[in-house]
Structure formats: C-alpha cells, structure tokens
Design a protein around this nucleic acid. Structure first.
Lengths: 186, 186
DNA sequence: AATCTAATTCGATAATTGTCGAATTAGATA
DNA sequence: TATCTAATTCGACAATTATCGAATTAGATT
C-alpha cells in the first residue's frame, strides 16, 4: 500500500543507486564490476542492490562465479506510470484524519461543560468551531428562532453572532424573512 | 543535471512529505492545517514544504494571515513522465568512468616494468587484460607471427597463449592459415 | 504605531542510513 | 574432496536528516 510507494522513492533517493540503475539500463553487470565502476566496496554495492531488488527494480541471475544483475524494465515502467495517475498520492493521504484540524481547534475553545470560551475571530478557526456547533442541530428538522437561540446559548451568550455566522458560512439556512431555520446537509 | 533527479526522489522519499503531496492533490492547505492533520509541529512542516518547493513540486501563496501551499501538478507530471524515457537514468551514469574496471584489473596484474605477473584464469579479468595488451599493436598495421611474439613477450613468456586468446576474443585476427596478424578496430 | 498571528529560521538532538572491514556463505573449479 | 572466488551478512562508525523548541520575521488587523 502506501509503504510500497515510499520504499520505491527511497530506493531511488541515493546518488549511487541511481547510477547503478543508469548503468543497468545499458547492460547487465556483476557486483564486482559495479563496485569498480562506482569506486565502492562490493559489500556496499551489495547493500544497494538489495534495496533495489526489494522494490523489484533489479533482479539477479547467478552465472558461473558471478551474480549478474539486470534492470527490471517492466517494473520500472509500471511503477513510474502509476505515479502519473495521482491516485497513488491520494491513497497515501487516505490514512490521514482530515478532521484532526477541526478537533484541535474546537478543543482549544471548548470548556469542559461544552460552552465556548470565545467566538474565534479568525476565519479558519471560526469555520472549524461552527462545523462543531452545527452538529447540535438535527439534520432535516426545522427550528424557530427561539429554539435556535436556546440551543446556541449552550455554546455562547452571543447567540445572535453565532446564528449570523452559521447562516453566513452556509451551514444553516432560513426560509424567506423571519421564517424557520434548518441545518444544511453536508 | 543529475543532482536534480536525485533531489527529486529525495523530496518524495519521506512518508510525511508523501502525505503532504497526497493532501495537496485534493486542495490547498496552510502550514497550520497540515501540521494539525499530520500531527507535526509547524516548524517541521515548514521544513518539509521547503524541500518540496525546492524541486518545484509545491508553491506558496500568501493569503491574509496564512501561507497557502498548492501542488504544482504540471511539475509533477512533467518530471514523472521524463523518467519513463530511461534516458535520464543513463545520463546519471554518464559521469561514471566505464573503463575503471579494466584499469583496476590491469593494475592488479601489471608489474612496474609493464609485464604481467600471470595470465588471468577468469574470463572477465582475462578480457580486461587482453584489452590492455592489444593496445601495444598499431591499428591497421600488419604483423608477422614473429613480430607478434616479440611484442607479447614484453607481457608474458607464454606468448602462444596470449596470441591464441587475443584471436579467440576477437581482438586480433589472422589471415587464412599462417598469414599476418592485425589488430581489430574496436 | 502597536499588537497580534502564522510562518520561517536556527541550534540541538534523535533516528535513519550509507559506507566499510571482517567473517561467513554459496557455488564452481581443480 | 579440497580449494578458490564472488557475494552476502553482520557489527561498527560516520554522515545525513527528520523532528522539535525557541527566537525571529513578515504581514495583517486594530
């Protein structure tokens, strides 16, 4: 899954490993040859090749004394092509909790009894708090202005501001002038 | 040049940076929001974004208080597509000295006076030494067997073996049976 | 102008990882 | 079977880098 993608990039995120891939793009080489070409010790080259093999970029074939490595071109092409789709990147972020920011902001403004210390002045934080407040309303149900104020008073004494912002940010709507309020479906 | 490619992979070779790219693939985020989502400190996120910006993967736009980052999709697509060509990989290896292996092997077998300690028994090393020996012959010029032996005796007393291997590996040729020898153009 | 906020920079630290040498293994040659 | 060679593995060390906290900067709001 996502680990696979990170490992793929990590495998190529080293100058000597990139050189190995570049050399193998021309022809196959043994560990000893690569070590001489890159001026590295065989053990180091072996280590690099292991990382490349782990993500399927190279494969080894024993040939008499030598272990000849070659580039797995299909793996390289397939993996590289998949990255164009952007879907893989999004899947990497799939595990991220997209509500974490809201929760953090709300936690900063909420008292233990659920009321708000203040109404945030900054737009992004206000939005987060409003998304939290609006959950006190039942979706689809209609509320009179008195009922709305009753519920909002549990959050802050300035119910008029809360009401205005909820409507302003499109989280609640009111019918015509002076009619009932209802929560907008997200 | 090649540094650019390594840096590109390094930029993506971190799990948190991949998540950032994945999130930005959906919409733009501020540093603060990303920090909350990834449960990292803003300074750390700033560091990651700097690395991504360095390779042109993201760009920032100041918006009121916030610094909103967005994904540079064209850069991502272009760079990713270039990797399909395999040409970039070969260019990475362009700086590598492809004769280094030969020189290393020859150095192991050569005495200070230019003669060979032994004739290598292993194929790959024999090839390297023969490529060195054949350079004592002038391209295009024809040599009698006596002349050939004279030159080869500077390398090793077993001139017959050297002669046979040079022909066997296609580095020298002889005309018909018992005719002259000449060095094959590489 | 004064104040506030998010972002960045810097220094320090912890974790990761590239490199090597020594010891071991696997496989072919004699 | 015994020996030889290339490759791998392992432990140690050095270099890189991800992370954080503190201090500073850049901009906007009052």
């Amino acid at each position: 899954m996502s680990e696979e993608l990170v490992d793929f990039y990590k495998a190529l995120a080293d100058s000597n490993r990139l050189k190995i891939v570049g050399l193998l793009a021309n022809r196959a080489y043994s560990v000893e040859e690569l070590a001489a070409l890159l001026e590295l010790k065989p053990s180091t080259v072996s280590h690099h090749l292991a990382k490349l093999a782990q993500v399927g970029l190279v494969s080894a074939k024993t040939e008499s004394y030598y272990n000849v490595y070659r580039l797995e071109e299909k793996a390289l092409e397939e993996k590289t092509r998949r990255l164009l789709s952007r879907e893989d990147f999004q899947s990497v972020a799939a595990g991220v909790d997209v509500d974490a920011y809201d929760r953090k902001v709300v936690a900063d403004y909420r008292r233990r009894d659920g009321s708000l210390k203040t109404i945030p002045a900054q737009r992004k934080k206000l939005e987060a708090v409003l998304r939290h407040v609006v959950e006190a309303f039942e979706p689809g149900k209609r509320y009179s202005e008195k009922q709305v104020n009753k519920i909002l008073s549990g959050f802050h004494e300035d119910t008029a501001s809360l009401r205005r912002e909820l409507v302003g940010y499109g989280l609640m709507k009111r019918e015509g002038g002076g009619g009932d309020y209802w929560r907008v479906e997200s």
